[in-house]
Design a protein around this nucleic acid. Structure first.
Lengths: 338, 338
DNA sequence: CTGAAAGCGCTTACAG
DNA sequence: CTGAAAGCGCTTACAG
């Protein structure tokens, strides 16, 4: 590997000091237009690429951001991160991403690893069960960080999330408005804030329609297609009078479709299903799935915006942003025959 | 933001030199077990986190990897990158990811930005049309890089991709084995190597079955559900005798389902469809989609493996790895009535 | 087993 | 407008 060209090489070739070269390159004035011209030309010629880490060491300014989420391949996070990265890059930052894999130990190690890189700031969607204490390393180092998606009630950090309660409300209200008063809430883990908030919204919608949503219609499962399908096999069996369900996400709804059709009931005709997420495939199902869209890209973009704002102005007041979900009415919900 | 603790602080607290502290922390021997003990305790107490960038400046060793792909939110790349990151992290590396957005300018800028960070190596799935010249910056700096998914015929770089020709062969052979001799190849852009390779495989399979695959049955479109659906509207109209199609990916197949059902034909009964990718939803479609699985996670993991190997041994011979696709036979392909 | 010192590649206060 | 020099936080050859 050949030696990497540095400002000393440029200085030598241009017959200048490294100081002059640095000024010319960063464009901090103090150098004639002609000198700047020459320096830039030479830099190009010898393939000079500034060592950002050396600059960071000197200035204390980093152009690196960190992002830690449960699973970067989960479409929700993949979209969130993609827009976060794009916004960050447009502002001159690169993004280190990492999978915490729902492991608090790994998450803590990752936070410290990011700190070791001297990132300017950190975006984190904390693993379930993370307490504020999980952020102590970040706090101790006074590193700006932003919590997203999973609220841990951190009073110091910016937060960008989605209005899960409203999402639950929209789903339930849509069924209730169609005259469906008996439905299940299927999938999701009962110790996550997202799940609790959605349930809360469902109960609120029911209450607003003058009905009570009974605990026995709550069915937890992993938020996957397989788990959803299995859970529905049981529900269809044990609650054959129930012909509607709110699924924790579109994957669970996908499992529901399979299980429901296996019993001879038909989604959109004799059974109603609502999901959350609006994954691209939801529109192509037969029938197209009614679902609550959550806009992860907005979360990514707004998170980047808030982060960048805080880096510019570190004592800016803490902000809290909730992205509003939207119901996408399609054909998986049917008004029951009178 | 409080001053970040450094080895000088530890040295002062321990009454040692910074050299001793460094040796104790990196565990390079040269220091008594007791001293090491003391240093580590103090480091913990004062919340010391090593500045990796300063270390890198001195040692020239970076624990940062870069990954540039077209779109990190595309599920194929999201899965690839997720496994790449996990493998890299397990070996002590963090990964900076970035979206090239099919823009050669942006891609070049990103490469230089990664170089400026002093990454140890770079993974890239080049934007369509990238020539070897697009890698010149990496070559000039002697930076180890690995090309994945999109082969640009780079003779110097490691390559990990998928056997697209074989993927095309499997799809076509599956139709042919079911006795289907007349089918279309729909979706995908004709200037991409992936598309060309799949077509090549389709032709080879046809040839092996003693039939010719005619150019008029090739229909290009963006590889999306919407474009696929529109293209199928036309094909079903203009080629009503054709009752089978290989779709460039599962999204196009999704579009196909919608368009086909709109004409009264039924996938899996009077029309056969094969896709590529095996996205999670494919199994939940009605009927479940027969598709060719491509294993992006394997590409990510193997890429990380090769990259890490090269970092250990920079003069290791160039490697080329092709992940073998696998046909997932489900219910969207039907043998035509005699 | 330990310390004093140089140096990685930058930026920037200081001096001219 | 320009240069000589210090210093960011580490690691490591050199000396003891």
């Amino acid at each position: 590997m050949r030696k990497r060209p540095n400002i000393k090489d440029i200085a030598k070739a241009a017959g200048l000091s490294t100081a002059a070269v640095s000024y010319a390159l960063t464009g901090k004035g103090r150098v004639s237009a002609q000198t700047q011209e020459i320096v830039k030309r030479i830099a190009d010629e010898i393939g000079f690429i500034r060592d950002d880490t050396a600059a960071r060491l000197r200035t204390g300014q980093s152009n690196l951001l960190a992002a830690i989420v449960h699973d970067t391949s989960n479409p929700f996070f993949a979209e969130l991160l993609s827009d976060f990265e794009t916004s960050a890059y447009e502002a001159g930052y690169l993004t280190i991403v990492a999978n915490a894999k729902n492991d608090p130990i790994r998450q803590a190690a990752l936070i410290d690893a990011m700190l070791a890189q001297g990132v300017a700031g950190l975006l984190i969607s904390p693993v379930n069960g993370t307490e504020e204490a999980g952020m102590q390393s970040l706090r101790f180092h006074g590193k700006p960080y932003l919590v997203c998606v999973r609220d841990i009630g951190d009073k110091q950090a910016d937060y960008v999330g989605l209005n899960d309660r409203q999402a639950g409300y929209l789903a339930a209200d849509h069924l209730l408005s169609a005259g469906i008063r008996h439905f299940a809430f299927v999938g999701g883990l009962d110790h996550t804030k997202t799940w609790l908030d959605r349930l809360d919204g469902i109960r609120a919608a029911a209450s607003d329609s003058g009905v009570t949503f009974p605990d026995e219609m709550i069915f937890n499962s992993a938020p996957t297609r397989e788990a959803g399908s299995q859970m529905f096999d049981r529900i269809l069996n044990s609650h054959s009078d129930c012909n509607a369900a709110i699924c924790f996400n579109d994957y669970v709804a996908l499992g529901a479709y399979a299980a429901i059709h296996a019993t001879g009931k038909v989604v959109g005709q004799t059974y109603s299903v609502v999901g959350f997420d609006n994954v691209p495939q939801s529109a192509s199902l037969l029938p197209p799935l009614t679902t609550v869209e959550l806009f992860p890209r907005d979360i990514g973009r707004k998170s980047a915006g808030l982060m960048l704002g805080r880096l510019k102005n570190p004592k800016r007041q803490r902000e809290r942003l909730l992205i509003e979900p939207r119901l996408i009415a399609r054909e998986s919900v049917v008004r029951p025959r009178a």
